[in-house]
Simulated scan of single mutants.
Amino acid sequence: MASTNSKLQIQTSLVFAITRANKFLRHISNRRSLYLVLAAILFCWNSSILWFTHQTLDLQIFNLLLWLGVFITLEDQLHNLWPKPSPASFIFGSLVLAFLLSLSPWLINEQDGYIKYLIFPVILVALALLSRPAGNWQLFKKPLLISLLLPLSGAIEILTSPILNRLTALLTWVFLYGLGFQSSLSGKQILLSSGGVTVETPCNGVEQLVFSMSMIVIFHFVFPLDNRSNLLKALIGAILTAVLINVLRITLLAYLTTWPNKSGIPAFDFFHGTGGLLFSLVAAFLAGWIYLTLLDRELAA
């Protein structure tokens, strides 16, 4: 009797396991699951290309931030992500992806240049084509706009650097003077009694500026502000915060150069390099805090 019950339990367990396995296989074989897997693979490929080409950590983190923004905007639309491409959009999207992936060796060798800013938008265009015909991209409007922040950041760096270099140097000199340091300003160069710094791109704060403004854009897509004046306040607050954060960073770097026997150089190298990302993240956090504060006030009104 006990042997019969044991056999029945084993048979029941096997039937249950086979049923669950069949459901799992049907799930992963549907078009939406395969589409999401493809998107995940392309995300990994995009991140790997930036890593293999030794791009700055700021750019790699910014790229991840934009991917996160795309995911958040599509999170409540996952049920609509069932691919319904036309034959033409499917073929064209496949060709775009095939062409992009075939460029991998060249992209890895091409460490400099503007091409690194275009990879993410091209991936989003290809994914949109594989999901919908070109005239039916309402679902991908916000993700595509977010992806364009990457090439836009490169354009902002080129266009604003001449102004930001001198402005950051001026504001840093004023701040140091206010703190009681005997300093002088010569163009983009700030001189102290036993040290000094020269403000050049990207130490002019463009990265903090891009992080902060992008945070406002992403938040506005996800949690839109109805009052345009509040949106303007958020943008202005993000810009001012980013500039102030970078002034504090350059002030710290200038101070570290005055330490005796160059003892401040290790800390200088850290905050001038990898540690500089901390200031970008703080600027982005403060921009998000400003936006959410304004959103709370708007909802409470």
Rank of each mutant, 00 (worst) to 15 (best):
P202T: 09
E207F: 11
A267K: 03
T251P: 09
I216M: 09
A234I: 07
R228N: 13
M215G: 13
F270G: 04
M215Y: 06
G205W: 00
S229N: 08
T251K: 07
S212F: 09
T274W: 04
V206I: 08
L253F: 02
L231M: 05
L292W: 15
I236L: 06
A283I: 02
N204H: 04
A254S: 08
L231G: 09
A284Q: 09
A234S: 14
A234G: 07
P202L: 12
L225T: 07
F279P: 09
H272I: 01
M215P: 11
L191V: 10
G196H: 05
C203G: 13
T257S: 07
I239G: 10
F211H: 05
F221H: 12
G205Q: 00
V282D: 06
I290S: 00
K233S: 08
A283L: 09
C203S: 15
Y255M: 11
I239D: 04
I216Q: 03
G237N: 08
S194I: 01
F268G: 06
K262N: 15
P224D: 14
A254R: 00
T241F: 02
S214G: 15
L295P: 14
I236S: 01
W259T: 00
G195M: 06
L244N: 04
S214W: 10
F285K: 10
T251C: 15
V243M: 14
P202W: 06
R249Q: 03
A283M: 12
E207Q: 14
V282Y: 00
I265P: 08
L278P: 04
V217G: 14
N230K: 13
N227I: 04
F268S: 03
L231K: 10
I218G: 07
L294K: 08
I250R: 04
L252G: 01
I250M: 07
I290L: 11
T258N: 12
S214D: 11
G275C: 11
L278S: 01
A238S: 09
T198I: 09
S214Q: 05
F279T: 10
N204A: 01
L253H: 02
T201F: 04
F268T: 02
V210R: 03
K233E: 10
I250V: 15
P260H: 14
I245M: 12
F221L: 10
V247F: 06
F223P: 00
L191I: 15
F279W: 13
E207P: 10
L248I: 14
V217M: 10
L281S: 04
I236M: 03
I290A: 03
V282L: 12
I245Y: 08
L225Q: 05
F223M: 11
E200N: 06
F279K: 11
V199K: 11
W289G: 02
A254F: 05
A238E: 08
L192E: 04
W259Y: 07
H220S: 10
G273C: 13
L286P: 01
F279V: 15
W289H: 10
S229D: 01
L232M: 03
P266F: 02
A242P: 05
A234K: 05
M215T: 15
D226A: 14
S280D: 15
D226T: 11
S280Y: 03
V210M: 13
N204R: 03
N246Q: 06
T274E: 11
V199W: 08
S193A: 09
A242Q: 05
S280K: 09
V197Q: 02
L253S: 07
P266I: 01
A242C: 05
